[in-house]
Design a protein around this nucleic acid. Structure first.
Length: 134
DNA sequence: AAACTGACGTGAT
DNA sequence: CATCACGCCAGTT
């Protein structure tokens, strides 16, 4: 399905600029790319992702970007991102919240009193390379 | 344009 | 553990 001609001569329009990706697009890409690297069965915090993606101190930005995934369903493991307290940040009684918990549990992540131990399941924490400390 | 609103985090009380 | 105050900042009102 060729939905667009990469090089339609002058028929397309006056200015055919490369359309430089906006800063927000670059950020979104970097963030999603980083989230995609979180191993199954592990979790990462918003601030951690922000930092690794090159936007230290921008935890909220990560949340904003991930929020866009809910509707536009993507294959990004957004459920592996939680807050610094080890809790799911989505509204407690929301469908999305339950979905996130469901997915994490399916990967073996254990919840204790609505919280996840970052020590044990945190990405690149607890023991470096060790799969899981148990 | 100003105010409000968050899938946040951290430090102080 | 619960609140509050900030710092941060993009999208909505």
């Amino acid at each position: 399905m060729a939905r667009r001609r990469p090089d339609s001569p002058a028929a397309a329009g006056p200015r055919e600029q490369p359309l430089a990706p906006s800063e927000s697009d670059l950020a979104r890409r970097a963030i999603l790319d980083t989230v995609a690297r979180i191993p199954s069965g592990r979790v990462a915090t918003y601030s951690q992702i922000a930092w690794l993606a090159g936007y230290p101190g921008r935890a909220r930005l990560v949340g904003r970007v991930l929020g866009g995934l809910l509707e536009a369903g993507a294959n990004t493991p957004w459920h592996r991102v939680i807050n610094a307290a080890g809790q799911i940040s989505l509204p407690t009684f929301s469908e999305a919240h339950r979905e996130q918990k469901r997915r994490l549990r399916a990967e073996g992540v254990v919840f204790a009193n609505e919280r996840v131990s970052l020590r044990r399941y945190g990405w690149q924490a607890g023991g470096g390379e060790s799969p899981l400390i148990d």
